[in-house]
Amino acid sequence: MLLHATQLLLGGLFLYLGAEWLVKGSSGLALAFGLRPLVVGLTVVAYGTSAPELTVSLAAVLEDRGAIALGNAVGSNVANLGLILGLTALICPPRVEGGLIWREIPVLVGTAAVVPLLLLDGVISRLEGALLCAASVGYTAWVIQSARRGAQGGAAAVARPSPPSPDERGAFAAAREMEIDAERAGAPGGRGKRRLALITAVGLGLLIFGGKVFVSGAVGVALGVGMSERLVGLTIVAVGTSLPELATSMIAAARGHSDIAVGNVVGSNIFNVLIILGAAALARPLAGSPAGMAVDLAALGGVTVFAAIAMRTERVLRRAEGAALLAMYAAFLAALILAA
């Protein structure tokens, strides 16, 4: 048991370091090859926050442990909204940008609703996985195009240079937070393309290795304490892969940038369904039944709808609503324990 717990901790550390180095190197390369900072912030940084979940889910499904991959995606989304967004609101109630309300939040609710629909026949097939991955590409293109239109509209409205749009401010701020986190994780500096390519490669290697070690440790812990793979995926693996987002969101909220945390959580939940579930099912079909996952799916739907309503009503997520999200997450964990 001690060996498996050590694997779990070391795997989590490698996932954290790998994600930070990968984002730093790949975003630096993208800028070096001429991509706009806005595009980098909305693509490389956004996808990078879901890198640990993606790596762990792929490692699990390739070892024929699809229950961990499915539980990881669903459990991470519940943890992102209940735990991370709840704590963020308690620390510093965030304002919610208008663009997030009309664009991302409907997609957030839609992706949560898609999960039980995909499982109606008991399996997420390779075709459905491919469709989810294609939807992520289309969604990313739509976000970039919407942000560009907003920036161009602001520039055309006045003769002097306009201030950055909310999308640009959010992307720049998120990219800056990621840069700070990468420095904290020990990623080396420098702007040369070869150096950035090496940082990217090392980050990717750490992610792949960390994912395998983390899954091995999680399975060992599950067998040691009598937990099912599904329960491990929903709890230990889900929280473990969400730790980088938790740390980033807490630091951003403590610095008064809690709006970054909102965008980070919402975007991560969307990508967790489209990319993580999509890529995992593409590698190997994922089995699961709505009846057997009733608690999981009810928690995912409930916390998503509550968070969406709370963010849309007054465009501020208040402390009382943050406390309610935390209570919902605690109730979810209690229900899992009682049902085990």
Rank of each mutant, 00 (worst) to 15 (best):
L8Q: 01
L22K: 03
L22H: 05
L31G: 10
F33V: 15
L38K: 07
G41Q: 01
T43Y: 02
A46D: 03
S50Y: 05
L58A: 10
V61H: 03
V61G: 04
L62N: 05
E63D: 13
G66R: 04
A67D: 14
V74R: 02
G75N: 07
V78H: 03
V78I: 10
L81H: 09
I84W: 01
I84R: 10
A89Q: 05
A89F: 01
C92F: 14
R95L: 11
L100D: 04
I101Q: 09
P106C: 07
L108D: 06
G110V: 06
A113T: 11
V114L: 13
L117P: 01
L118E: 07
L120S: 11
L120Y: 07
G122F: 00
I124R: 03
S125G: 07
V137R: 08
V137F: 10
V143N: 11
G150A: 12
A151K: 12
Q152Y: 08
A157G: 08
V158Q: 11
P163G: 14
P163N: 07
P163Y: 04
S165N: 06
P166K: 11
D167F: 14
D167I: 10
D167R: 13
R169E: 15
F172Q: 14
A173H: 11
A175F: 10
E179W: 06
I180V: 15
E183N: 06
R194K: 14
R194V: 15
T200C: 08
L204Y: 06
L207V: 03
V215P: 00
V215N: 01
G217R: 01
G217I: 01
V221L: 09
G224N: 11
G226S: 08
S228A: 14
R230L: 08
L231V: 11
L234M: 04
L243Y: 03
T248M: 13
A253L: 04
A254G: 13
A254R: 14
R255S: 12
G256A: 05
A261R: 00
V265A: 03
V266N: 02
G267R: 00
N269C: 09
A280N: 04
A281G: 04
R284H: 13
L286M: 02
L286R: 06
A287K: 12
A291T: 10
M293S: 05
M293R: 06
F306Y: 13
A307D: 05
T313P: 00
E314C: 02
R315P: 00
A324N: 08
A331L: 09
F332N: 03
L333E: 12
A335E: 11
A335S: 13
I337K: 12
